[in-house]
Simulated assay, not measured.
Amino acid sequence: MPYTRVVLLTLLALVAFAGNSLLCRAALAHTQIDAASFTTIRLLSGAVVLWVLVVLRNRNRRDSVKVTGHGNWQSALALFVYAAGFSFAYIQLNTGVGALILFGAVQTSMIAFGLWRGERFTTAQWLGLLLAFSGLIGLLLPGLSAPPLTGAMLMIAAGVAWGVYSLRGKGAGDPLQVTAGNFSRTVPMALLLSLMLLSRVSLDSTGVYYALLSGALTSGVGYAIWYSALPLLKATTAATVQLSVPLLAALGGVVLLQEPVTLRLLLAALAILGGIALVVLTAKRL
């Protein structure tokens, strides 16, 4: 695949990831849709689009390679916790703050898992991890510009769940088909959540439209694009380029949603993203 196409696919995927934060925040802050309904519509539309992509891909395959993997309920539960926590957190959090907390929690949980499994860190990596933790703690400390604690905790839970989901996905089989299977399994969970919160259901056309875009486009198509680019990227490159997602989301929030940028957010972003970059880029080459 030509280098320019790889770059284009990677950029489109990163924009899609940032778009998820923008669409969720826009829906829950500027429309009447409730978080449970947004989650359900997002997961349902994502499942439909992903299975359509799987069917089309398999139909057009010219080789006899068997496609393996259909997802599982444990991974689906992690995916559901991520999606639900993500939605309910964005009731309170601005786009950039939410994306930064999410990204910090995802990477921190995955790094912690590596340490638990016995991976050895260099001195520079330990400094990077300490810097990232310090940035996350500094962002959450009480103060005039601190994000609401409930929203922050929900987003941290969403980030940890996405980290678990990502770790469980390693070697699970064909990424697109496994993701489609996991999304499908989240649908009954999401419907149950909506049923439990039926008294709080609130829908409007714009909110539903945003949820459909988030599920079908920035989740379904976005994940498919990312999986097309991922095999052609080095692991360190794939991890590093994702550092741009919170910044893209924050920029989109400022430009499209007129959200403020605080000094605390800027300093926390530098600490968290810089620390994680230090961990990734100074990893031992085995």
Rank of each mutant, 00 (worst) to 15 (best):
K66G: 00
E119P: 07
W51I: 00
G98R: 04
T68Y: 04
S64Q: 14
S75D: 04
R62L: 15
G69Y: 13
G118P: 12
A83K: 01
L56M: 08
R62H: 15
V81R: 06
N60E: 11
R117V: 00
T68D: 09
R57W: 04
L102A: 05
H70M: 13
I101W: 09
Y82R: 03
V81A: 14
A83S: 14
N72G: 09
E119Q: 15
G114N: 10
G98S: 05
G71T: 06
A105M: 00
L53D: 02
S75H: 04
G114R: 11
S64D: 15
V55M: 12
G85K: 02
I91H: 11
F86A: 06
V52R: 12
G71H: 06
Y90M: 15
G85Q: 02
G118H: 12
V55G: 01
G118S: 13
G69T: 12
W116E: 02
L100A: 09
R61E: 02
V54M: 12
Y90D: 04
L53G: 01
T95C: 06
I111R: 03
Q107E: 11
V81Q: 07
N94K: 09
L115A: 13
V65Q: 13
Q92P: 00
V54E: 12
V67N: 07
G96S: 00
T68A: 12
I91M: 12
F88H: 04
W51T: 02
Y82H: 11
Y90S: 04
N94W: 03
R120P: 00
H70K: 11
G118F: 14
V52E: 14
L115T: 04
V65Y: 01
L56W: 07
A78G: 06
I111Y: 03
G98Q: 05
A84W: 14
A99F: 05
F86V: 09
V67E: 10
E119K: 15
V67G: 06
Q74K: 14
F80V: 02
G104E: 08
V65L: 10
G96V: 00
I101H: 07
Q74H: 14
L93S: 07
T108H: 06
Q107G: 01
A84P: 01
A83V: 03
A84N: 05
V81Y: 07
G96M: 00
N60P: 00
V54F: 11
G69Q: 13
S75L: 11
A78Q: 06
G104Y: 07
T68K: 12
Q107C: 01
N58Q: 15
W116D: 01
S109W: 08
T95I: 07
G96P: 00
W116Y: 13
T68I: 08
W116S: 06
S109I: 10
R117Q: 12
R120T: 11
I101D: 09
V52M: 15
D63Q: 10
V106R: 09
G118Y: 13
R57L: 03
L102P: 04
Y90A: 04
K66F: 06
